[in-house]
Nucleic acid binder design. Structure first.
Lengths: 149, 149
DNA sequence: AAATATTATATCGCACACGATATAATTTAT
DNA sequence: ATAAATTATATCGTGTGCGATATAATATTT
């Protein structure tokens, strides 16, 4: 497929539109948890690994500090997590889940399979989704690696 | 791949992260045109079909009116397009490119191939990109169709 | 034809997302 | 040991992105 100025032919628009539409699809599920989509992503990171510095979340989500800091401040105000300066290095702020934040994981447990079901269709099989995830992760690796240099 | 609460396994995060990283990659090219990424998308629509109502752009970009209206207002202030009420139906606002807006297409012509080159790597071939575009467009169709009901 | 519903666009408020910049703490170079 | 550089996080300003709502024009119903 030769790249042109046509909207549907370029990779950028399908990825951008799919991202927004998938997030829209998540919203009703996340509303039950009282989380926005980016807040949900932060919680996913912390459910995998707790008591991490802000920079860890920044790296995992490929976001910038100036996006993550306000996210953490809102989640702290919601009682989901705490932020405390590290003893070893006072530049670092350690983010830790509260009991409430840990408990929310149980409520969230059903979301991934519910969402996967939403995305399947005649044209898109589970294998397709798996392949998409793989290729997109490779694409992300390429884009992120160049950025680091 | 069984869906879990792990960040990298779900389809949502790779799509979301890839979208943001691709847009970051575009930014230096778009800066030369003086356009943001969503503004560029509006121009792509108008370069394909001029003199269309706001709703046409909304449908093409899968955005909401309350996102597109301010975009158009900024592009109008930049002298790229005009907005005029339709004669036939005064509820409609017809968006038309100015000479300046049409001329910008020439400057933008090189962007798609430059961007495609940026995204290729050992792991991602042109065929992979084509396949990604196809599958994502199918996914978008599924998500958008459900929404319409 | 008047009331009601629908359609097309716009406004408002809030939460990202990011470039640019600031600040404080640690590391390094002299 | 002290100045300079680096690191980690935060603040500020602008531009989306969207739910909720408003407004004006057209279509439909009674």
């Amino acid at each position: 497929m030769e790249p042109t100025l046509k909207l549907a032919d370029q990779i950028c628009f399908p990825v951008y539109a799919a991202s927004r539409l998938i997030i829209r699809k998540y919203t009703p599920y996340l509303d039950e948890l009282g989380l926005s989509y980016p807040q949900y992503l932060v919680m996913l990171v912390l459910w995998e690994e707790d008591q991490v510095p802000v920079s860890f979340i920044v790296q995992k989500l490929l976001l910038n500090t100036n996006t993550v800091t306000p996210l953490l401040q809102r989640l702290e105000a919601m009682g989901m997590l705490t932020r405390k300066k590290s003893q070893q290095d006072e530049r670092k702020v350690i983010v830790s889940l509260t009991a409430k934040g840990r408990k929310l994981k149980e409520q969230a447990a059903s979301i991934p399979s519910e969402m996967a079901a939403c995305l399947l269709s005649k044209e898109i099989t589970a294998a397709d989704l798996g392949m998409l995830v793989n290729k997109l992760n490779q694409l992300i690796a390429t884009l992120n690696e160049e950025e680091a240099s």
